[in-house]
Design a protein around this nucleic acid. Structure first.
Lengths: 193, 193
DNA sequence: AAAGAACTTGAATGTTCATTCAAGAAAGCC
DNA sequence: GGCTTTCTTGAATGAACATTCAAGTTCTTT
């Protein structure tokens, strides 16, 4: 009996990088071979097919981004400072060249015109979880009297999610990092008002 | 001497529809043949290649969306009412099933991971023109005292563009039309505040 | 009505790409 | 060390696709 020679997490993170960089459709098995170090046959053995790899990668992304969310949001003096930190981190990610300008889930969704139901469900779960993070945050902020109840936590969540989508799309057109920071600051203010 | 049998505008609008529906990359020449009624050879004769058709389509889109902008924004009691109308129209477009959920330019930009410089320039021109429309609008609103000068027209333009990008991306996940309307209303308020 | 010019057609071409599979290599077990 | 099981390799396969082009069609001019 032999053990597999690769580390699944490592492979999936490499795959995510490749997918985010070129888009799912344009990432060939050759690209994936180069990125992950796995030969086509091995990928098929481990994940069934290209879409199987995508689904596994989306699940990994889900885990990773949840962890990152918690890490960024925690350990601040106020709840809203955590939110601010998160938004600022998004901006820095967007400003990187060639790297992750888009949220992986969202990119896949627009890449696949008619996504497979399974893929769609994994993405929906991702987004759901992300939104829950924000909603919890706003509930805590409400409890701590950092925001008023003129809008519900859910409404604020929707606004901030929309805003981040917008920020990321805006970043595609290579604006100066100052403009992006200004937009992020404005978003933060609008959402907390 | 013969005349071409097709109407260029009609063909380009049909091509835009096809591109927006399936995405540029996934739209095959067969799809384009079906959509435009032109056989592959004719398309190559008229536009050089697939990318030539894309560029011509983007230029047509530029014209059409400029015209639509003016049409939507004009003829209201106040300048801001025009803006509101425009945002509301965007929401209705997003709510349509299968139709134009995304701005064509923006969709192409994310579809082509490394866009040809020519394509990129045409898109940049599109966006520039669109932004100018908003900036003019906010300048008029400032002159008419409908908004204050706590933020420049350019800053407000950036915010509204980001917001519309966000709205459109948000629409991809099939939210209820009420949520979308609420987000649009909030966007309008935040931008005019 | 005949010739010529321009346009249209769609099968053929060559390329790219996901996927398969048979042969080879390595680990565990006796 | 030999045997079995599992994993890895990468060339072969076949489908999908953009592009070409030679033959066919239609319009205009004289």
């Amino acid at each position: 009996m032999r053990n597999p020679e690769f580390n699944k997490e490592q492979v999936l993170r490499a795959a995510i990088k490749a997918f985010v960089c070129k888009g799912y459709n344009k990432t060939s098995m050759q690209d994936l071979k180069q990125a992950t170090g796995l030969h086509p046959g091995s990928i098929y053995c481990a994940f069934g097919n290209k879409q199987g790899l995508l689904i596994a990668a989306l699940e990994q992304y889900n885990q990773d981004s949840s962890a990152k969310f918690i890490q960024l949001v925690s350990g601040h003096n106020s709840v809203l400072a955590g939110l601010k930190k998160y938004i600022e981190n998004t901006v820095s990610e967007c400003s990187l060249d060639g790297a992750e300008k888009a949220c992986f889930s969202q990119q896949v969704l627009s890449d696949l015109s008619h996504p497979d139901p399974i893929v769609e469900e994994v993405i929906a779960t991702n987004v759901e979880q992300w939104k829950n993070g924000f909603t919890n945050l706003f509930e805590q902020a409400l409890d701590a009297n950092e925001i008023d109840n003129s809008r519900t936590p859910l409404q604020r969540t929707q606004s901030v999610v929309m805003g981040i989508y917008g920020l990321r799309t805006y970043a595609h057109s290579h604006p100066s990092s100052d403009v992006l920071k200004e937009l992020a600051q404005q978003l933060f203010e609008d959402v907390c008002r």
